[in-house]
Simulated scan of single mutants.
Amino acid sequence: MRKTILTLVGLSILGGTTLGGFALNVQAVETINSQANVSILGGPLSINGIEEMNFGNIELNGKDQIKTGDSISVTFSDYRGSNNEGFELTVKSDSAFDNKGLNLKLNPTASSDSQVTLAPEFEVTNELHQVVIGEQEKLKGTATDYDVTVGNELIAAKSAKAGSYQTILTWNLTATPNE
């Protein structure tokens, strides 16, 4: 009986090893494919932040004076994820400096991205003035953050009256259509 059990165990091990070798060559009877789908949606074109301008004090002295302020940072994002449209950043004032002998000039001087075009120095009025242009042909179409440095100066004419003055600047970031 012991011989029979040992023989059966031996055959099981030998048979298992032999069958195990054949098991590696078994092929699937059926193959099926599946998909993985995703839709990437474009995000916003948005202004993230603009620093305030503060020119401090100007003391009247009978001459026109130019007060240069600290450059400000204008940050905005284009997360649309497509280069089908460009963009334009513009600014205007509320005319509070008009007829007060005060003129505000802005000069975009640097950008974190060479794909954009900076406007030359301009005087801010109640009409929209271009600050930055992102032309559709130059944009890569990837989600991008922009940081534009804008120099500024305030010109106080010798005719300016003593007082505290403030103007509100309105910044607009708009998509420009593919032309």
Rank of each mutant, 00 (worst) to 15 (best):
K3H: 11
T4W: 15
I5T: 10
L8Q: 06
L11W: 05
G15T: 03
G16K: 09
T18Q: 09
G21C: 05
A23M: 15
L24T: 14
N25I: 15
Q27K: 12
Q27M: 12
N33A: 10
L41S: 11
G42S: 00
G43I: 02
P44Q: 14
I47P: 00
N48H: 10
N48Q: 15
F55N: 04
G56S: 09
I58Q: 10
L60F: 08
G62T: 04
G69V: 02
S71P: 09
S71V: 06
S73R: 15
T75P: 07
D78E: 01
Y79C: 03
S82I: 02
N84S: 08
N84K: 00
E88S: 05
L89F: 01
L89N: 01
S93E: 14
S95P: 04
A96N: 04
D98F: 05
K100T: 10
G101I: 07
L104M: 00
L104D: 01
P108K: 00
S111A: 06
D113T: 10
Q115I: 13
A119D: 06
P120L: 09
P120Q: 09
T125I: 02
T125A: 01
N126Q: 13
N126E: 15
H129T: 07
H129D: 01
H129F: 06
Q130I: 12
Q130R: 12
V131C: 05
V132H: 00
I133K: 10
G134T: 00
E135R: 05
K138Y: 04
L139S: 08
K140H: 12
K140E: 15
G141P: 02
T144W: 04
D145Y: 04
Y146C: 07
D147Y: 10
V148R: 04
I155L: 15
I155D: 13
A157C: 08
A157H: 09
A160R: 02
S164P: 10
I168Y: 06
L169A: 01
N172K: 11
N172P: 11
L173T: 00
T174V: 13
T176A: 02
N178K: 06
